[in-house]
């Protein structure tokens, strides 16, 4: 474990807490894409298939449980909670996320470290997470008013992957023959997809104005 990875995991945890706070306290999921939340639930399910077979550490297991539990809770809130679901904008959240899943699955079957079920699922989860934010970014373009919590949620979600890249650089430098191209490339694509959001988020912070993405 290194400081980059610990900070990254805490940032990821913070993003989930911010979203759950928004949904649980003000009972609203306005501006949040259910498609992205469903993709994240799939990402964690496919990535943590080893939760019962490979014990790494208490930290690792506890964090896996937290990410699985919170991602499914958020999907449940947005789909079935009688108040929260009313603020879900299904007419705007129309990204066909199945078109993201199929190419990622095919790619995982073709490019992986080991052709076993768990490993292909693990690889699929990285390719899918790289593009999982797309429905959310499309929804942001469409909904004009982005509230602070939504902006903070997306910022933290993007920042965690950027911090993981620092972790991967650190591990590559300090650990002999630590090479994992699949997470590295996926993580790089994922972070780059947040590029313009980070730019406009920084501008809104610097000019102290509301976050607005260009149409």
């Amino acid at each position: 474990m290194n400081i980059f990875r610990l900070t990254a995991d805490m940032t990821h945890l913070m993003s989930v807490i911010v979203l759950l706070l928004k949904i649980h306290t003000i009972k609203s999921c306005a501006g949040i894409s259910l498609k992205t939340q469903e993709l994240y639930a799939i990402v964690f399910t496919c990535r943590y298939l080893d939760i019962f077979t490979d014990f790494i550490s208490f930290y690792n297991t506890i964090m896996k449980v937290i990410f699985l539990w919170t991602s499914f809770s958020i999907v449940w809130y947005m789909r079935y909670h009688k108040i929260v679901r009313r603020s879900y904008d299904k007419d705007q959240d129309t990204f066909r996320h199945v078109f993201l899943m199929l190419p990622c699955l095919v790619l995982a079957l073709l490019i992986n470290e080991r052709f076993t079920f768990k490993e292909v699922m693990w690889t699929f989860s990285f390719y899918l997470e790289a593009v999982a934010i797309l429905p959310q970014l499309v929804l942001l373009q469409r909904t004009r008013n982005i509230d602070n919590l939504t902006g903070q949620y997306i910022f933290l979600l993007g920042a965690y992957r950027a911090l993981y890249i620092l972790n991967w650089i650190y591990r590559y430098v300090t650990e002999p023959n630590y090479v994992h191209w699949i997470p590295w490339m996926s993580g790089l694509v994922q972070t780059l997809l947040y590029g313009d959001f980070f730019y406009y988020y920084f501008l809104s912070w610097k000019n102290n104005v509301k976050l607005q993405l260009p149409a």
Partner: peptide, 10 residues
């Protein structure tokens, strides 16, 4: 065959 080391990152 040697068991590959598990993925240790989240």
């Amino acid at each position: 065959d040697v068991k590959p080391e598990p993925h240790d990152e989240l």
